[in-house]
Amino acid sequence: MTDWFPLALGMDVPSETAAPARLYGKEIALWRGADGQVHAWEDRCPHRGMRLSFGFVRNGNLACLYHGWQFGADATCRHIPAHPELRVPGTIHAHAYRAEERAGIIWVSLNEDASLDELPDEDAFGARSILVQAPLASVRVALALPEEGWKWQEDCLVAAHEPEPGLTMLHMASATLANRLDIAARAKTTRDHLEALNEKVPA
């Protein structure tokens, strides 16, 4: 079993924005600073539990929508607007996971020691993250996805994760920029095919 999960296309988390993701129901906030670096944190503010993916990016920090606490790239709290003079103790921090951007896809590992060797090292351009209403296990079988959870299919990188039981997000990236539309069309055909297969399986 791999340590890395493909959670989103890089292009779907633009600079200075945050986005929600889920992995087997676990809520994760993805965000990208002005420097282009992607972060993946537990989607829960340490203050009162607001979802950090609703937050906004300011001065290289992710600010919580609720009371505006700001967290730096290292996940420690840098600023509490209600107490502007306070030097925030380093013990207050968001819970960070490892995040790595490869082949147009954002990969997240809950294991700090995960090896980067498991990830693709070729370049690719994100084409489509598409919802498939079928469990990941059956998508894996139908697409013959290997253990690592991703593979090259000619000029297309295919990867998948399960946001919640029974639903799969299929992420497809293209080896060339020009081919992205073709690959996006292929993503739709693949989805329709997989959902039709899934409906045939008796519950």
Partner: peptide, 9 residues
């Protein structure tokens, strides 16, 4: 859940 719909987001 909007995590399923990146273009809508």
């Amino acid at each position: 859940p909007l995590d399923l719909y990146p273009a809508i987001r």
